[in-house]
Simulated assay, not measured.
Amino acid sequence: MTAALLVLGATSVRAEDVVMGASLPMAGPLAQFGEVIRDGYEYAVKEINDQGGVQVGDEKRLIKLIVLDNRGDPNQVAGQVRKLVQAEGASVLLGAVTPVFNGPLSAAADQLKVPLVMSLVPIDAWQDAREGGYKYAWDIYAHEPEATKVTWTTADMAETNKKVALFLNTDEDGEIWGRNWTEQASQAGYEVVYTARMPVGTTNFAEYINSAKQAGAEIALGQMVPPDAITLWKQMKALGYGPKLASCEKCGSGDWWPGALGDVAEGTLTSDVWVRGLGGPGVEGVVAALGEKHKGKVLSGAVLSHTVVNVVVDAIERAGTLEADAINAEIAKTDGDYAIGHVAFTVNHGAPLPPIMQQWQDGEAVQVYPVGAASADLQAPAKGLQ
């Protein structure tokens, strides 16, 4: 099936346009992310073009954004990247989501020697997918050792028996988050008493849930794709497993969570790198333009996508050319404030963002850590699973 093509920006590709290309999952288990990423890119491009475009040397050029729909199939990514670069003339590539898509994107960018800036993929899970790392790919997102530590800091705010069950997909994210949680637990004063590792697409979780119950785990931590985790949460409720704290990473990241689960979603924790009230230059515009369509936590994907485009534009303007190596060298020098906050590539080709913890309360994702004037009280036990 031919991939869908979405062209945004100037009405037709001209030799003088700055072409940016992306391969996004607009179908499949991560389609929700594909939509918000696309919308964030589209808004950023429109905003920049409305101001005259990108300064390249002595002239202003409009951005042409070309988005290919990989239909949730990572095997399509490499071919789509070649099309974007070789047929569409993309000077820069923009990322997708998770190692499943950003991994092959990064490998293709290195092979073709075209700069790629991405987000929504934890730094270690992305870097570990390729021995020796990447030369042309760059990631702006959470760094797992710090993101997983927020789990324990948040858990310290509740009374539990400190026994933990892990529910992990057998993908790169599940591997990295599971390893960090397991290694950090004892130092934080917790004990991982059960670990379930489940292929993406699992539908019957009874065995895993009953094992967690029998182990006496009052804390359940998940790193899963949304459809799997939604089914898991429903079965946890049906089987009477009511942990006092329940976290769902990646899975609990958007309005689809309370939308699919209703009251069962109440109290679910999920970490992030942004919440309304945080951020830097341009964040108000993103919230105003997309905040109604993408309510709740998933809006952070649009803020990150806006940041990605602006990091690329700043690098092009500093380079004064569309020559790949010159742009790549300037991306490396990034050290500034964007919609998501401060961005600097300090972990190899990764720009780690400070993590926060949110909790679904009354259909809204609210910040519960760090504790401050803008934070809500932690709900414990998590009402949805009681």
Results as ranks from 00 to 15, higher is better:
Gln80Tyr: 01
Ala339Thr: 00
Leu299Ile: 08
Leu112Ile: 08
Trp138Ser: 07
Ile140Asn: 04
Gly296Ala: 10
Thr202Arg: 06
Gly28Tyr: 15
Val286Trp: 09
Gly222Pro: 07
Thr148Gln: 08
Ala3Thr: 08
Ala344Gly: 03
Tyr134Ser: 13
Thr321Phe: 07
Ile230Glu: 14
Leu105Ser: 09
Ala27Arg: 13
Ala44Gln: 09
Gly28Ser: 10
Val18Ala: 15
Ile37Trp: 02
Trp360Leu: 03
Glu172Met: 08
Leu353Cys: 07
Val117His: 01
Ala142His: 10
Leu245Val: 04
Met1Lys: 05
Lys295Gln: 14
Phe205Leu: 03
Lys297Leu: 14
Arg61Leu: 10
Val54Arg: 01
Gln214Phe: 01
Gly34Tyr: 13
Asp272Thr: 11
Lys113Val: 13
Arg82Gln: 14
Leu166Cys: 05
Val312Ser: 09
Gly350Thr: 04
Thr2Asn: 01
Ser91Phe: 00
Gly103Cys: 05
Ala376Gln: 12
Met1Asn: 02
Ala109Cys: 08
Val303Asn: 07
Thr307Val: 13
Ala329Phe: 09
Glu159Asn: 04
Asn49Gln: 00
Pro74Tyr: 12
Val366Leu: 04
Val312Pro: 05
Asn310Ile: 13
Val19Ala: 04
Gly320Gln: 08
Asn310Glu: 12
Val81Cys: 04
Glu249Trp: 08
Ile123Asp: 08
Thr2Asp: 02
Gly336Ile: 10
Asp156Glu: 09
Thr154Glu: 05
Ala332Tyr: 05
Thr11Glu: 15
Trp126His: 13
Ala87Gly: 00
His349Met: 01
Thr170Asn: 02
Ala147Asn: 09
Val85Asp: 00
Ala329Pro: 07
Glu191Ser: 14
Trp181Val: 06
Trp181Asp: 00
Val164Tyr: 01
Asp377Met: 12
Phe345Ser: 05
Ile37Pro: 06
His306Phe: 15
Asp156Ala: 06
Asp171Thr: 02
Gly240Ser: 03
Asp128Gln: 15
Val298Asp: 13
Val264His: 11
Glu144Pro: 07
Gly133Lys: 14
Asp50Tyr: 01
Met198Gln: 08
Tyr190Gly: 01
Pro281Met: 14
Leu269Trp: 12
Ser300Phe: 12
Asp337Ala: 14
Leu221Val: 15
Gln358Arg: 12
Ala107Phe: 07
Leu239Glu: 02
Ile340Gly: 01
Val19Cys: 05
Pro29Leu: 12
Tyr241Pro: 02
Asn310Cys: 10
Ser211Ile: 03
Lys162Tyr: 00
Leu120Cys: 08
Tyr369Ala: 14
Ile331Val: 13
Thr11Asp: 14
Ala125Val: 11
Glu16Leu: 10
Pro381Tyr: 14
Asp139Asn: 12
Pro352Glu: 00
Lys163Cys: 06
Tyr241Ile: 04
Glu330Asn: 10
Gly296Gln: 04
Val347Lys: 04
Gly320Val: 11
Ala108Pro: 07
Arg318Gly: 05
Glu207Pro: 12
Arg71Thr: 11
Leu245Thr: 10
Tyr241Thr: 03
Val343Pro: 06
Ala206Ile: 01
His294Thr: 06
Ala217Asp: 06
Gln184Ile: 03
